[in-house]
Write a protein that binds this DNA or RNA. Structure first.
Length: 583
DNA sequence: GTAGGGTTAG
């Protein structure tokens, strides 16, 4: 039997449920303030929830309203906490609100509160605050809520505390689809590809059917691994299971195919999409750019503008890097202006592209002036780009200043000393070469060997600095040296994967058939290495006199070579000769 | 009233 208040309150709820916009909500609010129900906590909390959470709401109005509620109930606290974490500007405001809620002592957190605060903590990676929320969840006996469980798991994963996330995951007795997806996504995000894929397999073993959200993480893991065969298999799996190719999954597929070298396949997915947003367009543009398909990338950018999708900073990274890789200096400058006209504020990455553009075109002085005129403090990448340009051009006098800046910013990065040492060596400045060695020693900086690999038919071929153990290393070196030489002779500058592809295809058709397997390995390396499987694992750096093979590859592609945790990936792929067997 | 997803310079 409903109480008299409930009878009166029901119309409020239904009124708010049907409220179309804030204008109407304000009228409803005004009406209730004047009515005898003006002080009803229930009515106020419903009005607050609408303004804080609905798509047509107004968080500023919700904040003002919340400030006027004398003793907000838990529902109101939850609404304002969640509402404040939904705004695009990331802040710790929801966490501060939660602290205020606890201090007020009037309302106790429930599973909704904990889930919302954890979400807020994961958005801003507020690790210490999240830890306390974890304690509260246990103290208030709320861990049994699946929303709290996944909230905690996701919080740890987003803070890159993956072992903690795994502990939470293992503690969940009844793991649902969301928990599995969150854990797989957590692994994939930080590049623990093997763990992500193994967990995906375990998920199938316990008969939890993955959905499109799960598959985004799985595909993203394949992209990070450069595992084209696995990626293809997963795509077929998605089709076989009838999982919908929504916007996010299609974008993940475009990215995976592009990063694994199958740019045509990426384009096929892109062309098959009904709706494309900024990220989808950007993935395709970036993919084309890194493959050296500069004309296609720039045409696609025009098509994007024609289709009224607003480009963002990532789109312009693709456009500017496309220009940089093909020497289109004036076009690059034009796009730089377009970017500003479209209201996309240049970030460090964009300045990096422009410096790269000028350096590759041999305009070192201009690049240096550009760096000095930057309104933000140049980072180490900018100085390194400039120094690599110095090394290649040999006609620039400001290298010393750039070197000082770089060493000041990153005195412990071995890569910098090696770069500078090589730069001085290229100029026969041997005293400076030994000074670099001494500085490195003084700082206790050690060289970490660079490492690259390629996957062919599910088998990973690994190459590490100073490691000659590959059974055909000599032949592979010779072949790559030959390919590099042919490209050099052909006068293609800068070298792009498209040019390389042509040369390798030509090789395939020529008299080298007896070396087909080696060629496949070399080609596989080119195919998988260059298209930005360039994932640099933190604290690992390519440095030192890299292995001949990796050096040639990086030279050919004129980009940094891959460093990633090969061993893990190797273990995974080595478990089987082909991925279809593995699954 | 709640949870898990896609693009990023060298």
């Amino acid at each position: 039997m409903p109480s008299p208040t409930q009878i009166l309150e029901d119309p409020i709820n239904s009124l708010i449920q049907r409220c179309p916009d804030m204008r109407t909500l304000r009228q409803i609010h005004a009406h209730f303030l004047k009515s005898p129900l003006g002080s009803s906590a229930y009515a106020l909390s419903k009005i607050l929830a609408f303004s804080a959470l609905s798509a047509s709401g107004d968080i500023a109005y919700a904040r003002r309203m919340f400030a006027q509620i004398p003793n907000p109930n838990v529902f109101s606290w939850n609404s304002i906490i969640r509402g404040c974490s939904l705004v695009p500007e990331q802040s710790k405001e929801p966490i501060s609100l939660y602290k205020r809620m606890l201090r007020s002592g009037f309302a106790h957190p429930n599973s909704f509160t904990i889930a919302f605060v954890l979400k807020a903590c994961s958005i801003v990676s507020a690790f210490s605050e999240g830890l306390q929320v974890h304690c509260h969840a246990l103290r208030y006996g709320l861990f049994s809520s699946p929303f709290v469980q996944t909230g905690l798991l996701n919080f740890y994963a987003k803070c890159e505390k993956i072992a903690c996330a795994r502990c939470v995951f293992d503690e969940i007795s009844d793991k649902n689809l969301v928990a599995w997806s969150a854990m797989i996504g957590g692994y994939a995000r930080i590049g623990l590809v093997n763990e992500a894929l193994v967990l995906f397999r375990e998920m199938q073993e316990v008969r939890i059917a993955p959905d499109e959200v799960t598959m985004v993480s799985v595909i993203s893991a394949c992209a990070k691994a450069g595992a084209l065969d696995l990626g293809r298999w997963v795509h077929a799996f998605i089709d076989r299971k009838g999982i919908e190719l929504d916007l996010e999954l299609s974008t993940a597929l475009i990215d995976m195919y592009a990063k694994c070298g199958a740019i045509d396949k990426a384009r096929e997915v892109f062309d098959g999409m009904d709706v494309r947003d900024t990220m989808a367009w950007s993935s395709m543009i970036v993919g084309l750019a890194i493959h050296g398909h500069v004309k296609d990338a720039l045409e696609l950018f025009s098509a994007m503008l024609d289709s009224q999708v607003k480009p963002n900073h990532v789109t312009f990274i693709g456009v500017l890097s496309a220009c940089a890789h093909s020497g289109l200096v004036s076009d690059g400058r034009r796009y730089w202006s377009t970017m500003r006209e479209l209201g996309v504020a240049p970030l460090m990455e964009h300045y990096g592209c422009m410096v790269d553009l000028l350096c590759r075109a041999g305009r070192l002085e201009e690049a240096y002036t550009f760096v000095n005129g930057m309104p933000i403090m140049p980072n180490s990448v900018i100085w390194r780009t400039l120094l690599v340009g110095c090394k290649n051009s040999r006609t620039f006098d400001e290298a010393e200043t750039a070197a000082e800046q770089l060493l000041q910013l990153e005195p412990l990065n071995a890569e910098n000393y090696v770069l500078l040492s090589n730069l001085y060596a290229s100029r026969c400045q041997w005293d400076k070469v030994s000074r670099m060695r001494k500085k490195m020693k003084d700082h206790g900086v050690k060289v970490v060997p660079g490492c690259s690999s390629t996957e062919i038919d599910g088998f990973v071929h690994e190459f590490t600095v100073g490691d000659d153990t590959h059974p055909e290393i000599k032949e592979i070196r010779e072949m790559l040296r030959d390919i590099a030489e042919r490209v050099r002779r052909a006068g293609h500058e800068p070298w792009t994967s498209a040019v390389l592809h042509d040369v390798v295809e030509e090789e395939k058709e020529s008299a080298l058939c007896e070396h087909s397997e080696r060629l496949a390995i070399a080609y596989g390396m080119l195919k998988t290495e260059a298209p930005v499987v360039v994932r640099v694992v933190k604290n690992l750096r390519v440095c030192g006199d890299c292995h001949e093979v990796t050096k040639i590859i990086s030279k050919i592609y004129d980009r940094e070579i891959i460093v990633r945790d090969r061993v893990r990936f190797h273990r995974f792929v080595n478990g089987s000769c082909s991925c279809s067997d593995f699954w």
